[in-house]
Design a protein around this nucleic acid. Sequence first.
DNA 1: CTGAAAGCGCTTACAG
DNA 2: CTGAAAGCGCTTACAG
Lengths: 347, 347
Amino acid sequence: MAERVRLLDVAKAAGVSQGTASNAFGKPDLVRKEVRERILEVAKELGYRGPHVMARMLRTGKAGALGVVFPDNLEYAFSDPVAIELLRGVGRECARQAVNMMIISAENPEQAITAINNAAVDAFLVHCYSDDNDIISAIQRRNQPLVCIDTDIAGAAGTVVLDDFAGAEMAAQHLIDCGARKFAILSLQANKAENFGPMNAKRRGAVSHRVVRERLGGYHASLKKAGIAIEDVVHIECENMSSHSAEMVETMLRDHPEIDGILAMSDVIAIGALDGARASGRKIPDDLKVIGFDGIAEGERTDPPLSSIRQDSVEKGRLAAEMALGETQGDNNRVLETSLLVRGSTR
Amino acid sequence: MAERVRLLDVAKAAGVSQGTASNAFGKPDLVRKEVRERILEVAKELGYRGPHVMARMLRTGKAGALGVVFPDNLEYAFSDPVAIELLRGVGRECARQAVNMMIISAENPEQAITAINNAAVDAFLVHCYSDDNDIISAIQRRNQPLVCIDTDIAGAAGTVVLDDFAGAEMAAQHLIDCGARKFAILSLQANKAENFGPMNAKRRGAVSHRVVRERLGGYHASLKKAGIAIEDVVHIECENMSSHSAEMVETMLRDHPEIDGILAMSDVIAIGALDGARASGRKIPDDLKVIGFDGIAEGERTDPPLSSIRQDSVEKGRLAAEMALGETQGDNNRVLETSLLVRGSTR
DNA sequence: CTGAAAGCGCTTACAG
DNA sequence: CTGAAAGCGCTTACAG
């Protein structure tokens, strides 16, 4: 490959100083029109490809990119429908602000830290459930704006979370209103230790993921209000994967045939629950009512269509990106609302 | 904020040269253990945050990131299930090679070109349908490895495409084997001009998107072989969106009630076709057989489950990333195979 | 194994 | 509006 043409080469060939040549590209208003055009023409003749990105970055200190990290599970970003919606929102805001989107990729936590240190970005966005995390610390060490989604982290420039408590309250209240009395709660993973299956009271007390804690609290609040004892509620911790929750629900319905209402902490889990319930011979919503959480599009096509608590994940991502990129004034701890979405799986 | 601590500050404080300090971080083997440890300790005391990313990039010329561009439609990346699978594959390979993933984001083509010029990456991956494209030219001007997915572009370092022709042949042959005789083809967008609706012979001759050209060719080959005249086949160009194809199919079945086989160029289109056919009172597969293309997971849950031509989009993305990052020897024009996926929508 | 020096390519005060 | 100069922070030949 030929030697790279530099700005200085262009400047010399055009008979101007390097500074003027630089301005011709970066600040066109500062250069007289004829001069600018001559510089651009000479540049084209020499095959100059425009200012070197890395050099400009070093000089200006601006990377023109937003880093996005998924510390809990790095492949998760492109698997979970909710995470994808989030990315769509982030992408939208990045496009609006003419900033690229750097997805930090790694196979394991150690590599993730290296990846974070190697990323030329102006700010970070983190989606995670827990806050005690080496990856988070690595980001904080970079000393750049950091916005957290779905969890609170001390020292973050901002936080975007859902009013998970209120959403869960709504979900449980809705099932109660539909006549359910014997409840099962299908929980998302509650903390770092993977411990899928029945969730006893001890484990329910050791929840470190904010989302799980809040949603559990919301469910319980409505159930208690309706006079239902929490000890009588079946709790199961599920992987966020339909095939897994389907199995869990089949087993559960064998052990607890009386269950007539399922509160699932995600639509992905709820969709599996529909499968498991159908395989167990239950008619939904007649025998058993199921409500999910998130309101993903796929819930429209299930059999029956899935009731849920709708959240606007796209907006969640967009807003977080906006905050990270520093266009937001004032309050930097945002709580987004949810709404009840009634479809065929409850009545 | 305090002044940034530089490597030179660390070197001075540790009583070594800057070069040695640099090696302590980047090439630990070249520095005696005690010296290295002293340097690292001094660094920690001074609050040195590790080598400045941009400076290292400028010096080494390596960005440690792969650029990913979706020139046809920039929001498409996080909307289309097939694009998301592609991204998952790219992400997986990036993780394997410890490289980050830079998604080029922009609201319009002009901004996209700026975004490309501002991206500090080592190589580009492009997913697109057409090859005549200002955005592609902008990437090529960067003079970095470029791998194209789903289209051929002159001067690309590599290409990953599907054997779309063979896949489409299989799809049509399968419907013929199932007894269909009166066909409709639901095409993806055929070229830059959005021209949704009936697709006459003239427009069928002006297809610039490779995928559409190949799939159309494959369908036609099987149909001709079965003695079906192409002029009798209804062709409709659809937006790649289920709600749109559903409408198109309702109208189509009103105008052409004889249709008993639908060949859809994507599963997203096919899923809409199922809706449209159901709304028109057709029983699938008894009255009408439908086959899609792609084999996305969502096709398992439709009513009835969708037959399709399966492609491995994850592997497509992964392979393209591998090629772009230069780990591939030999042939750099890969053609991936497809397979027939028979489910409830055909019999 | 260590040190002194050059230079990656640019932008931005500064002086005119 | 233009030019000369400094410096962003690092890594890497090179000489010892």
